[in-house]
């Protein structure tokens, strides 16, 4: 197998398998979202999306010295989780008239120092984007989370994108990126690069990945597990599949 001597990482003896399984995706992606955001000590960080990645990004933002972490979503159980686990200030965007205006008002009119899009193309929150991108599929999903990130970050701020977008067109306010001098950073997680540092964080108790696991489901029941996760049922944050005999 090509690269088999490069890709894998040895799981330390002391590490709980539940922590290890989340180190393959959720933890590095959330951490890299915060890393790419270029957070400086005292920065206000706004994160769109309280899924496993957004919640982990909130947790990791503190490691980079954030002074304030704000999370938006519309599912109350996820906001409650982010409030405790982040910890973070959480807001339900369905209860707010205008997310961007809200962010400006809560940051003395400047906007957040950095914004993280941890949602991607499945975002709710804007009827036009939902109809165009998620129902009629005329664009590659909804770009409302990125829209809010661009418009609610300060001039000269950084927008970090780890939410998944499709390759075709989106309704993104690119003109505002120019006018505000915003830096956009985006990437798939550099898992192998980040793992040594992340393993240290788990060992030191800075990150507790397994707390995100809300469901353990036999592999044979994968269809139902996927349905629960994708439809966000039963207060699901992150399900883990268990192979027979595990």
């Amino acid at each position: 197998m090509p690269y088999a001597d490069v890709g894998p990482t040895v799981i330390p003896d002391w590490m709980d398998p539940d922590d290890a399984v989340l180190m393959t995706d959720v933890v590095p992606t959330g951490y890299q979202a915060a890393e790419m955001a270029g957070i400086r000590k005292g920065d206000t960080v706004v994160i769109f999306g309280a899924g496993p990645i957004g919640i982990m990004a909130a947790r990791c933002a503190w490691l980079f010295g954030a002074g304030r972490v704000i999370v938006f979503d519309y599912l109350e159980y996820r906001l409650d989780f982010a409030r405790e686990y982040g910890p973070a200030e959480v807001y339900n965007f369905k209860e707010i008239d205008d997310v961007v205006v809200f962010m400006k008002k809560t940051t003395d009119g400047l906007g957040a120092d950095v914004a993280i899009d941890a949602v991607g193309l499945e975002a709710s929150g804007n009827s036009w984007q939902t109809v165009m991108g998620r129902k009629l599929l005329l664009t590659s999903g909804s770009a409302i989370a990125l829209h809010w990130a661009i418009n609610s970050v300060k001039k000269g701020g950084i927008v970090s994108i780890v939410g998944v977008y499709g390759p075709t067109g989106n309704l993104v306010p690119i003109g505002n990126v120019v006018n505000k001098g915003i830096t956009l950073r985006a990437n798939q997680a550099s898992v192998k690069r980040l793992l040594p540092r992340l393993i240290e964080h788990v060992k030191n108790g800075h990150i507790e990945p397994k707390k995100l696991i809300t469901h353990k489901v036999p592999l044979d029941d994968v269809a139902n597990a996927y349905h629960i996760f994708s439809r966000k049922l039963d207060n699901c944050i992150k399900p883990v599949l268990l192979p027979a005999g595990a």
């Binding site: 270029g38 503190w62 964080h201 800075h206």
Partner: peptide
């Protein structure tokens, strides 16, 4: 949130961070 009570607060803060 009182950042002094967050385990690991600022341990990865690095002004030269260029991810």
């Amino acid at each position: 949130i009182d950042t002094s009570t967050i385990p690991g607060w600022g341990v990865d803060a690095d002004p030269d961070n260029d991810p």
